[in-house]
Design a protein around this nucleic acid. Structure first.
Lengths: 211, 211
DNA sequence: ACCTGAACACCGTTCAAGT
DNA sequence: ACCTGAACACCGTTCAAGT
């Protein structure tokens, strides 16, 4: 499981602790329930004293900030990876939407952390280009779609904001199990995405008439 | 400021502590920055020992749960109060959307608390009718609109889910100042709501052509 | 330069007492 | 029946020492 660079037997006195802490935190996020892990716990799992992390991060929020940034990077990658060259703008939007949702459902605690106010100033993190990438990918697709005539002629910034808000809300409500009765077999999420596309696409076709 | 029922001079040994704690917490939520107040702080402000609250709530989460429920009730009231009898379904949806957003912006910390996983099991709170009201109000309007022909014929549950996700995302991103550059004079929020209505309304008119 | 261990000022929660 | 105060097992953070 843990085969680091030059670890010979077991104890090491100084290695690449900063990276180790981040990876330990990500692993904790992946396994555990809730993103509210304790800094001391991360230090414990990384086999260092509870004060060692302070040599690499000014405080706990700084570590969370780093994790959040990493999350946004990965989200952007997942969205990019969902695209195929032949796709039309609406198809691209749908693919990115599903990729976004899937990312949240596969990494619920990391996703919550990304949008937690504990991870530093929220207004600041979105100034970092690493966190902005997903948003600008959407704008780009929308603008191309408007040029092609497949996307409704509206403010692309507004449409991108709408898309992001919609996806963020849907993802958050979904991973928190807040979406109504959640009856087996109901398609609330798919239907919600249909309504999002209805708002973006020009002359939407009747896809799923619904109840 | 604090004129309770039968408080004569200052010290009281046992009154309606449960209600006092809730009101103190709400006041703290209103003033302070962040909803992560401490149970001990609430007790301090309520002039009781730090263990007194445990006579009225099994733990801190139970108090947060109560506050969250109260928040959903107020949100529902605000949405209901925004309606006028003469409104069409699309007008109702728009009015409720603005009421929702306004509620979040006026009570940012309460709103965050309502959607925090710390306030008990999220899946459980939405079983309470008090928390469901806002959602069903939207469904009702959507169904009436579909009958009138002003709302697109799609699954009303899906449309309601889409509306809620959209509004929740927009509200959260807005109060956390996560909405892009946020240049003065840009209308990202209004434009985002336009896109939401584009998805719900049948044959949407060109309202704000945008950039 | 990096890490440890004791220490400080807090928490949430429990429980034997008090009134 | 309700409230207090000491106590427990934790935190995040700091800092004088160690290597």
């Amino acid at each position: 499981m843990s085969s680091d660079q030059t670890s010979q037997t077991k104890p090491y006195h100084h290695g690449d602790l900063r990276r180790t802490l981040i990876e330990t935190a990500l692993a904790t996020l992946r396994e555990q329930q809730g993103w509210q892990f304790t800094l001391r716990e991360i230090a414990r799992r990384a086999q260092v004293s509870h004060s060692a992390p302070y040599r690499h991060f000014p405080d706990k929020a700084a570590l969370l900030y780093e994790l959040a940034l990493l999350g946004f990077e990965r989200l952007g990658e997942a969205m990019r990876a969902s695209l195929r060259p032949a796709m039309s703008a609406p198809e691209r939007l749908q693919a990115m939407a599903y990729a976004y949702l899937a990312f949240g459902e596969e990494n619920p605690d990391l996703y919550r952390l990304m949008f937690s106010t504990q991870a530093g100033d929220p207004a600041q993190i979105h100034v970092d280009p690493r966190a902005q990438a997903p948003f600008y990918q959407v704008i780009e697709v929308l603008e191309r779609g408007q040029a092609e005539g497949t996307i409704r002629a509206r403010s692309a910034l507004g449409q991108a904001t709408a898309s992001w808000a919609h996806l963020h809300g849907l993802t958050m409500l979904s991973i928190d199990s807040r979406l109504v009765p959640a009856k087996v077999g109901d398609h609330a999420i798919e239907d919600a995405l249909t309504t999002l596309l209805d708002g973006l696409v020009r002359d939407p076709v009747a896809r799923s008439p619904g109840a």
